[in-house]
Simulated scan of single mutants.
Amino acid sequence: MRRKTMSERIRQIANGPPVFRFAPSPNGRLHLGHALSALLNADMAKSCSGRLLLRLEDIDLTRCTPEFEQAILADLDWLGLAYEQPVRRQSEHFALYRAALDRLIERGLAYPAFLTRGEVKARVSAYEREAGPWPRDPDGAPLYPTEERHLDAGEREARLATAERFAFRLDMEKAIACLDGPLCWQDSGDGERGDITADPAAWGDVVLWRSDAPASYHLAVTVDDAAQGVTHVVRGLDLFHATAVHRLLQVLLGLPAPLYHHHRLILGPDGRKLSKSQGDTALGALREKGMTPSDIRTLVGI
């Protein structure tokens, strides 16, 4: 039997024109791991005459800078990526994220949370000294304590009036109770493939909004993908498990579910995924050493 081409596989599972997106954060220079993701998105879009979008996830107004944005655009131009204009910037869509958050608040699915990171850390340390391991999410971070889910309206309003900083978190228990059946997504990447069972409960009450940020990554990326009509999310395996949260938010907000392709990561000499702080793998540094876009393709193995 003839093996299907990439284009045929994509069109087989897509409803309408395939739409891909590359979505870096302008808080550092692009490195080889970003190059792999950008080139895969471009190659898969080209293989099926699909569209390629660029989104700059600049919601962190402290760390994201115009200088890093310009460096990203220069790197993508050097790689030869052709993407549609205009570029979407998260910093221009804060009202859209807030509207999504308000819908969840109105349904009682999000609540204000007041514990600081330091207070959570102290709580977890004290618990583990006495009773053993505290539950942790797939990334290894401790789950947020859940007692604030149950504050009565009066106490909640009083704390909001005096709190200097707080967050809104998803009430995971109530959110999961809204589901009509099993939650899953379809993945064609380098890890598990096929229909993947989502386990959002493993993440606990995730942050949706902080007083110092207009939205969390989970909320913003879910809203953005729907707003841009993204049908295929191609990103690294480090975000594989986070997809469970995104699928849950898609259901709660009535948004379509894209198809996913979680690709392998480019690892450093220490066996860990590359970081923007590792300047020797930055595309700009490699370009200055005389490497070509073809060399970059060879380095990332595509």
Rank of each mutant, 00 (worst) to 15 (best):
R129C: 11
D77S: 15
L73P: 06
D152L: 09
L265S: 05
L286M: 05
R247W: 08
F114K: 08
D270P: 07
G290F: 02
E148P: 10
E8I: 11
S211Y: 04
R55S: 09
E288K: 07
H34Y: 12
H263P: 04
L183C: 05
A95R: 13
G284I: 01
L267G: 06
G279L: 07
L274A: 04
G33K: 06
G194T: 08
E173R: 12
S25V: 08
R297Q: 01
D280G: 00
R169E: 10
L170T: 12
F166W: 15
I105F: 03
V230L: 03
I59Q: 02
G254D: 09
P256T: 09
G108S: 08
A38W: 03
E119S: 07
A74Q: 08
L76D: 02
L79N: 01
K276Q: 05
V234Y: 06
G191Y: 13
A175G: 10
G301M: 00
L79R: 00
K121Y: 03
D102S: 13
F94E: 13
Q250I: 13
R89E: 09
D171M: 02
E130P: 04
L56W: 05
R123E: 08
A158M: 09
Q85T: 08
M6D: 15
I72H: 05
L54A: 01
H218T: 02
I296F: 03
V230W: 07
R9F: 10
V223T: 10
H150R: 15
R264S: 14
W78A: 06
C178A: 13
S294K: 00
R9P: 02
I72G: 01
L283E: 01
K276L: 06
L267F: 13
R103N: 12
L143I: 12
R247I: 03
G181N: 12
C184P: 02
G140C: 14
C184M: 06
F68V: 05
A82M: 00
M291F: 12
T243L: 13
G181R: 05
